[in-house]
Design a protein around this nucleic acid. Structure first.
Lengths: 114, 114
DNA sequence: CCGAGTGTTCGATGAGCATCGTACAGTGCG
DNA sequence: CGCACTGTACGATGCTCATCGAACACTCGG
């Protein structure tokens, strides 16, 4: 069934995955990409719901960017919400950390990527 | 015949990478594979230098197995040594943990892979 | 109601990589 | 020495995935 609650948006709601349902392999695969790593780290440096998808400084086009956010949602790392014409993001810190303790901290603490 | 000293082996020594020189992306990429994850976990359940490469229960041929160990070495996760005709392995727990604190523990503690 | 801005979807493309089979190179045992 | 065992090197193959361009959908401000 569609879970389209209140009758505000006529837009396809982003599909989220609960971190509890994410396998270790899925989580690691989602993190093993430089673009997604950058997204997560930039997101971690901003307040929740303040960054739209297009506001990130990554060297890929819109289509690829949309794909990356889809992967991040599927790994339980990012939550999205439609706000006007934009889709704003939130890093699921607590939830993801409960499933994979320390992993997110490790990613954010690292000083070099490549 | 007892153990061989420095001048004994005429065999190509395995190329190792110090965990300190491993990037986060390289580490995550190495871990984001079910076969390698299995190798690491099986290795963690055995004493150091007791497991030869062929002694692991993974559904791949010799060639692929050799490749996986090469990746694990390159990520600073595994150390290898030639012992007679076999190549025995050791999980670099302390060293890798010093570079990426908690990551290895997380991998080993996880109860499901996929 | 139109147009600018934002993001998704679709099909195609290219690169990387996991895998295999085979040939090759050491090692040690009989 | 010759042979079984172990692992690596190499070339080929097939699949996954990151990316792009273009078309489409939705929102909001004139």
């Amino acid at each position: 069934m569609a879970n389209q609650t209140e009758g505000g948006s006529h837009r396809a709601a982003p599909v989220h995955t609960d971190p509890e349902d994410v396998s270790l392999l899925t989580a690691l695969s989602a993190l093993a990409d430089s673009v997604r790593l950058t997204l997560i780290r930039e997101l971690a440096g901003s307040a929740d719901w303040t960054r739209s998808c297009g506001s990130f400084d990554v060297p890929v086009g819109k289509a690829a960017l949309s794909h990356h956010f889809s992967v991040l949602r599927g790994a339980g790392l990012v939550e999205q919400r439609d706000e006007g014409p934009k889709r704003v993001n939130r890093l699921r810190r607590e939830e993801f950390d409960a499933r994979f303790p320390g992993l997110l901290d490790l990613i954010l603490r690292a000083d070099d990527l490549d």
